[in-house]
Design a protein around this nucleic acid. Structure first.
Lengths: 241, 241
DNA sequence: CGCGATATTGATATAGATCAACTAATGTGG
DNA sequence: CCACATTAGTTGATCTATATCAATATCGCG
């Protein structure tokens, strides 16, 4: 099932079999994007939305000098540009981080869903509001936390979200972001990210190898990042850092 | 009309008379909140949503030490906690800034709207995604701009949004936020906000009197804040800084 | 195996925080 | 409507987290 990870691990995911089938049937085709490619540019008209089947993508905005600010990081099960359905155009760019397989859903089929399946429509709405909740958390992170806190928060969030879709194994998960990318998500330079990573590593709070990250002590990291996963609306079994 | 300012001044606000009436009829009652009062605390169950008729409110999150980070500022016409309709609980607190008059819409009536008026439902969805777009812009502001840029961006945004609901007069608009509040929105201390305000005032870019702010040269201020109003999805007549 | 991307480390600079008065508004009770 | 209290705004001196600049080391890939 292409859409099996959609809202997986979230509370209130009461989709009926009929709704699941309607969503799966709404997929028009599947594509594969190479790593590090911008797939959508701000302002383009959107006629379909993109559900990540596997791989990772991000949404970002460039400042005047071309420095990138990530505004969201997306993993399997995320409907990355569903915002484009009501908005028609987006205010930011979208790119892959790692290679990604995506399912494309034409907007006319989403319109049909909102007419025929009001509850499923509210679940789609819900999923865009999860993004908004993450945005708020990112605002908090940038506005109130220092460098170590921001990075700890970002890693804790990624850990929790990947956990929800079964992609954490023994505290380890894929992490295809460079230190430069992490800096662009956290409003820091890659140099400073490197120094903070070292401190966290020396404190036994993170480990890394082969583009994967391990969190030996998630609660301690969550404490540094003032992270609490409420805003991810996870199912009961997933609600500890 | 209590709901007259809802989506006012936005592109794609094609509500039929019937839809407008349905929304107006969904209002169960009107309340008045005093200034500087927290009206909703994170995690409470929400059974109704709040549309601001007049006055200003904000959404915020506290850090461990109780320092506040604003994540949104809301004015007349904003459906401040419509996110709570699909989410059921919110991840942040809500408070008034100035005294506010609000219209309350029970969630069961919103559910009825999504079943009977799919297009109006998409417009409600659209309005929550405007919030998400503003959130993204706040992330950009905090992650990539310096103090002057952040403040310039925030003032430019407020100017544009109040313009959309007809609340800007000769470049002047109500601004009930203290410098402390601006700091909490922009990730700065009130002391530093004060110094930046002085510089902007001396440069002839802002003026203030009686809790109002005037922007003598909006394009120049927008340039400093790298502000472009695309993300507000304003009508054609309102799309210059 | 070698090259470009990424990570690492050190030295120095700076924007903004912090601490500490002081002043100007705004409000409040007698 | 005045006297006082409280809140908001202003300014200066100093400190610090993070940026910047620069060099080297290591990794992953063709």
């Amino acid at each position: 099932m292409l859409t099996a990870n959609f809202l997986r691990g979230r509370r209130r995911r009461q989709l009926t079999e009929e709704e699941k089938r309607a969503l799966e049937d709404a997929v028009a085709r599947v594509e594969r994007y190479p790593a590090r490619q911008t797939t959508y540019r701000r302002g383009e008209l959107i006629r379909q939305s993109t559900l990540i089947v596997s791989g990772t993508m991000c949404r970002y905005m460039d400042d005047r000098e071309g420095h990138r600010q990530l505004v969201a990081y997306h993993v399997a099960g995320d409907f990355i540009d569903l915002h484009g359905f009501p908005l028609q155009r987006l205010d930011h760019d979208i790119a892959t981080i790692s290679e990604a397989e995506v399912a494309l859903v034409p907007h006319e089929r989403l319109t049909a869903i909102t007419e025929r399946f009001p509850h499923l429509a509210r679940m789609l709405w819900f999923s865009t509001l999860l993004d908004a909740a993450m945005h708020r958390e990112w605002i908090f992170r940038l506005g109130r936390l220092d460098a170590a806190g921001r990075i700890a928060h970002f890693l804790s969030e990624t850990h929790a979200r990947l956990g929800a879709v079964g992609m954490v194994d023994g505290g380890w998960f894929d992490f295809p972001l460079t230190q430069q990318d992490v800096g662009e998500a956290c409003g820091l330079t890659s140099v400073h990210v490197n120094r903070v990573f070292r401190r966290l590593r020396e404190a036994g709070l993170i480990a890394s190898a082969n583009r994967r990250i391990g969190l030996p002590d998630p609660p301690a990291l969550a404490a540094i990042g003032e992270f609490s996963p409420d805003y991810l609306y996870l199912g009961d079994e997933l609600r500890t850092p």
